[in-house]
Computed example of a mutant assay.
Amino acid sequence: MFATTPAGLSGVGRHRVPGAARWHRFATISPSDGPTSRRPGQENDPVRIRTGRDGDVELLLAFWGSAAHGTSVSDDAAGVAALLAHDPQAVLIAEVDGVVVGTLIAGWDGWRCHLYRLAVAPEHRRAGIARALLAAARERFLALGGRRIDAMVDDTNTQAHALYRAADYRSQPSWTRWVHPLGG
């Protein structure tokens, strides 16, 4: 849980999802807290950030299919269900009026902080949603005792590069990611 309200978020709270055994946290961004570049129709729409739930599998897959840059080997129902079963708090979901407008996976392995699947719906970009998701992830990691955040960003996703640079992240050119697929 977050100890403080992340920058750009007007409130942080917890709520119990009906039928769920665990509490889920959420935060809201009030329109006055975000940048002035909101698109028409967004001026009075508060954005709420919540954590994942068991029933979010298809919702996340559909959202990533329309809003994310590229796909991942774990972009399937089994992969997302396993993530939600393992650590639903790692899945941050931004909503406006109950509609998903952004996501970020803020994974913690007990030693390092990892960001994956930062995506914002095209019609909601440049409205502060990605920054609010990054702020919520930062607060999660601070509460868990994290020391450094790394973000997985496709080399061809120049829009994401600009966002991360603006949020004070730096590319680490001396490192290369090596992967080994576990499946067939």
Results as ranks from 00 to 15, higher is better:
E58M: 08
L84S: 05
A3Y: 09
D168E: 14
R125G: 00
A132W: 02
L61Y: 08
V73L: 14
A162Q: 13
L142W: 00
T28F: 10
D54S: 14
G184Q: 05
D168K: 14
M1T: 14
A167Y: 06
D76V: 04
V153F: 03
F63K: 05
G19F: 15
W111D: 13
G146R: 09
P40S: 03
I149D: 10
A135W: 02
Y116T: 08
P173D: 06
D33F: 08
A67S: 15
G102H: 02
G65I: 07
G184A: 12
R53P: 01
H114G: 02
V179H: 03
A166H: 05
R140L: 09
A132S: 09
G183F: 11
H24D: 11
R165C: 06
F63P: 07
R112F: 11
G128N: 07
S174R: 08
T71N: 12
A151W: 02
A136Y: 07
A27E: 04
Q89C: 12
A78I: 12
P173S: 08
G107M: 03
W108C: 04
A62Y: 01
P31R: 04
R38A: 13
W23H: 11
A127S: 15
R25S: 09
T4M: 10
T36W: 04
F2W: 15
D45G: 11
H24I: 09
T4R: 11
F63G: 05
L142M: 12
R131C: 02
G65L: 08
G107V: 00
R131A: 12
Q159H: 10
V179S: 11
R25W: 13
W23N: 07
